[in-house]
């Protein structure tokens, strides 16, 4: 009986921990998933799946090293699977997916137009370069990005420098 209570308390602690992580990373994960072209509603479902897997992962006493990297990697892989499955779903129009930024009195119209153009340039970049940029934007360290995408640290640095320069120089030309 005491043992059962202990197990229940342990589960509760884990559930609390996972909920905290969910609160911290749901937004970043959803933004990253949207950047991969996943519709918001499907993204929410993927994020649920990620944290349910995390709960089980921790319950099974598996590695706690770099949970943020783990979370993003699982989300990334689920999104790719979702995309493979996507033949059954209408493709998401990325222009709709990235709506125009809301009018902001502090942002001039010219600035939001520049931002839209920049995002359009980013969307035209190679897939992996885009993923590096979006993961970097969510605050992941290069080592974590490399782990999520299964590429080397050098490849991450190269992709980031290349795509930042491409995006901003293309923007300046217009």
């Amino acid at each position: 009986m005491t043992r059962n209570l202990e197990i229940e308390a342990e589960r509760q602690t884990l559930a609390d921990e996972v909920t905290k992580l969910f609160q911290a990373y749901r937004g970043p994960l959803l933004r990253y998933l949207m950047s991969l072209g996943v519709p918001v509603a499907v993204g929410e479902e993927i994020v649920q799946e990620v944290f349910l897997s995390l709960f089980q992962h921790l319950q099974e006493g598996k590695s706690r090293a770099n949970l943020r990297g783990w979370i993003f990697r699982v989300a990334h892989n689920l999104a790719l699977k979702e995309r493979q499955r996507g033949v059954r779903r209408p493709q998401v129009d990325l222009d709709e997916q990235y709506p125009c930024p809301a009018p902001d009195p502090e942002n001039s119209a010219a600035e939001s137009q520049r931002h839209r153009r920049l995002m359009a340039v980013v969307r035209a970049l190679p897939q992996q370069d885009q993923q590096c940029l979006h993961l970097r934007a969510e605050g992941l360290r290069y080592r974590e990005i490399a782990e999520v995408l299964g590429i080397s640290l050098g490849a991450v640095a190269l992709a980031l420098s290349r795509s930042v320069l491409k995006a901003t120089s293309a923007e300046a030309v217009r």
């Binding site: 949207m34 709506p99 930024p101 931002h115 839209r116 920049l118 934007a137």
Partner: peptide, 17 residues
Amino acid sequence: GLAEFLQARAGAFDMQL
């Protein structure tokens, strides 16, 4: 360039959550 990208990206996604 990176700072500009971060700003542009924030505007594009945050409102949807």
